[in-house]
């Protein structure tokens, strides 16, 4: 079985999440190969977990002022600020039979590929169940998974550098609380590739590409025409709608 790898690309939040679901559906219909994709978010965006409340987690007004998109994912987990300059996101999609049955074990497997990529940059990272990767006790990557129609989708972010001030601006923390103390506390809990390596964003991508494809048969590819139209349809009918994004 050959994996399809879609090289690093940049889209807005709505397109990024629509593509993930379109590929999931295509794999479920046996019309697409198992897929690894890498992407960035432009404009920067906040994504929330599928069960989270948008208004509670996100300062929606501030996001609008700053031109930051807001979107609900189909995966659980927490709110993430996807800074265009600050991270690389990946998605991995394949029939569930390709992955360990246990949720924790399947996280461990895919997170292992990220850890292997970071190792290329001389960064020693470790899996921190349920769904994080840490370096020196601090989170460098958050990951989330869904399993539907017989397909497993895991996506996650690898932090390249952090901007805690903007993060606190867009996530729902009142401005009085954005004290230096709080930003320091974020710095104490979160780290990024740039704190451990001089690698460029491109080098981080290449290292991740290595980690994800090592020991796999793969070919570079793009979305099929069907996947592109399915993504367009999902974008309009789901991911751009308040009915979806503000459903909780």
């Amino acid at each position: 079985m050959k994996w399809r790898v879609i090289p690093l690309e940049t889209h807005d939040a709505y397109k990024n999440m629509s593509i993930d679901e379109a590929v999931l559906r295509a794999i479920a219909d046996e019309k697409a190969q198992s897929t690894i994709r890498f992407y960035r978010w432009k404009p920067s965006a906040v994504s929330i977990g599928t069960f989270q409340s948008m208004r509670k987690e996100v300062n929606v007004d501030r996001c609008r002022e700053l031109g930051v998109d807001v979107i609900r994912r189909i995966t659980g987990g927490g709110a993430v600020y996807h800074d265009f300059e600050g991270e690389i996101t990946y998605s991995i999609l394949g029939p569930m039979g390709m992955f360990p049955r246990g949720v924790r074990e399947s996280y461990r497997l895919v997170c292992g590929w990220i850890i292997s990529g970071l190792e290329q940059l001389g960064i020693k990272a470790a899996f921190a169940p349920i769904n994080d990767i840490i370096v020196g006790g601090k989170k460098i990557s958050g990951n989330a998974q869904t399993r539907r129609q017989g397909v497993l989708l895991q996506h996650g972010t690898i932090l390249y550098n952090t901007d805690p001030r903007t993060m606190f601006n867009v996530l729902n923390v009142s401005s009085e609380k954005i004290s230096d103390k709080m930003i320091k506390s974020a710095e104490e809990r979160v780290t990024s590739v740039s704190s451990h390596s001089d690698a460029s964003m491109q080098q981080l991508y290449e290292a991740l590409l290595y980690g994800f494809t090592k020991d796999k048969e793969f070919e570079f590819g793009n979305l099929s025409g069907d996947e592109q139209s399915s993504a367009r349809e999902l974008e309009g009918s789901v991911y751009r709608t308040d009915a979806w994004n503000f459903s909780r």
Binding site: G49, T50, F51, Q52, S53, K56, I74, T75, G76, G77, G78, A79, V103, I130, N131, A144, Q145, T146, R147, R148, R248
Partner: peptide, 10 residues
């Protein structure tokens, strides 16, 4: 029910 937990299936 809200939160950052996971459920399979959702």
């Amino acid at each position: 029910i809200t939160g950052d937990f996971f459920a399979y299936p959702e």
